[in-house]
Every structure is written in C-alpha cells, then in structure tokens.
Amino acid sequence: MNAPNCPFLGLDSLWIQVAGLSCNLRCAHCFNASGPGNRGLPSLSREEVRSLLGEAEAVGVRDVVFTGGEPFLHSEMGEIAGDTLRRFPATILTNGTLLTDRIVERLAAAARGSIYSLEVRISLDAPSEEANDRIRGKGSFERALEGAARLEEAGFLPIVTAVTFREESDPAALEEFERLLRSRGIRKPRVKFLPVFRVGREEERSEGYGEEDRVTAEMLEILGPEQLLCSTARVATSRGIWVCPILVNETGGRMGDTLEESFRPFPLAYGACSTCYRHGAVCANAATAVREE
C-alpha cells in the first residue's frame, strides 16, 4: 500500500531535541526509549540552539518546544529558555524531577523578561504514587509534584500531562488529578491527557502497531493535514531535522540537514501516524485550531 503524503503547510512549531535521548528516568512506555545512558542522540549546544532560533525567525515560527530525553539534564537549559523567550513563546516538556530552586528561578527570570508564554509540561501518568511509579520509576511521583509546586510558587502554571491507556478522556481521572494538584498548592491545575504511542519502549511492552494501523489517503482527505503535527512542525536534533518527535528513532523520519530541506511532504507510512491522526496533533499544548468536521 502506498502511504499518502502529508503536505507541509509552513513551520508553526519548532521542536528541539535539546537533551538528545538522555533521561534520568526510564519510563516503561517511553515512545523514544530515552533513559540513563542513552547516547543515541547527543544534546545540542546553546550555540546550536541559537542558530536554530535564527532560522526559525526567518521562516516565521509561532512557538518552540523543548523535548528530550529530559531537557533539564542540559546544563544550560535555563539560558536556552531565556534565549528563546526573547523571540518566541516556548514550551518545555519535562519529567519534573530535576526542577531545583535554582533552575526554577532562572526560568522565572526568563519568563519575566518576555511578553510570550513559557509553558512547562510535567509528565505524571497516574494520580497515585503507586500507579505512577510503576510506570515512571520509584520516587518519580513525589519529585515531579515537588517540581510542580516549585513552579507554582514561582508564578508558573505547569501543565500536567498524563498518558492515558483509555480511548476517551475520563472525567473522573481528570478530577482526581486536579484534586491531587490542588492538595499540593496548585491553584489552577491544568491537566492534559495524551494517548499512548506504541513505539520505543512501549513497543516492547505492548504489541506495537499492526499493518491495519495506517493513515489512508481517504482518511487524510476526511480530516485534512491540519490534523497531523507534521503538517506544521519539525524536530531539530543534533543529527539533523526529523519529521516529528515520535519518529526520532526511525531513519525514515529524517527530513534533512537543515530546516529548509525538511519543508516537504512526508509519507505517513508509520503506525504512530494513525495515533496522531485519531487524536489530532496531540503533542501540541492545546490545538490552536481545530478543523471543522
């Protein structure tokens, strides 16, 4: 079967794999198999990120998203956030366990100096310590919540993201998360559920994707390319530009050496594309636009 091409509509979101695949946690479901000692993708230097920001400015990017691995393993993440916020809104995806007072204060200083939003997204996969730590590792629950509380004290409104193994978002689960966050002093809890991507470490745990899990030309026609992150985003890594954060371990996901080279259609040949299609560019903070059906 020929995979349909997702057209490239212009770069709205530049993702930056700032810390490579290095992470202090080893979550059971990690879609890019990040973990301690994963040297599969070196991190980017502050200078390299600055150069990317220059390219992003030239093409009119809307926002910049930092991911990993764990971005706060990067020794200069605070400075990089400051460089970015001078020019763009930014989002940092973190496990929340390395948010020391020192780094939070740096982030707060960067945010104060900017008219743009800095979003910090903390991963927490269950509203109870036992269930969360089973997936994310012992101690991760408490440390992530301490990180969230530090952000709150510094005036941030962290977004807690939870991978949900259910089809539909569950209002009871949402309330449980909110209760938990309120009990930790977070006054405006923000919770976002993410679907599980059956790639990376998750592929070993579950069955991965089957041949039937594909986006067809017909499906793409129905909801349109805006439904997919790859129509308006790219991921910069130390090894070049990839099509989306989910596919950084796929050689077929590499789009070129420079952003400019990556601005071309992408064949939706992967099972993970069907998850993105069904849930609608889920990696974004909140869809800035939703296509009418």
Partner: peptide, 22 residues
C-alpha cells in the same frame, strides 16, 4: 480567527513578531 483559519486563536503571548509578519 486568523487569515488562514476561521477558528485559529491568535493570543498575544503566542504570537511572536516573525509569525505575525508571515
């Protein structure tokens, strides 16, 4: 919403100058 989509949200804190220029 925006010139490109009727329901695109243009927030102040999510609209950097180069993006608006585009």
């Amino acid at each position: 919403g925006s010139p490109r989509r009727q329901n695109e949200f243009l927030w102040e804190s999510l609209s950097p100058d180069p993006f608006l220029a585009r």
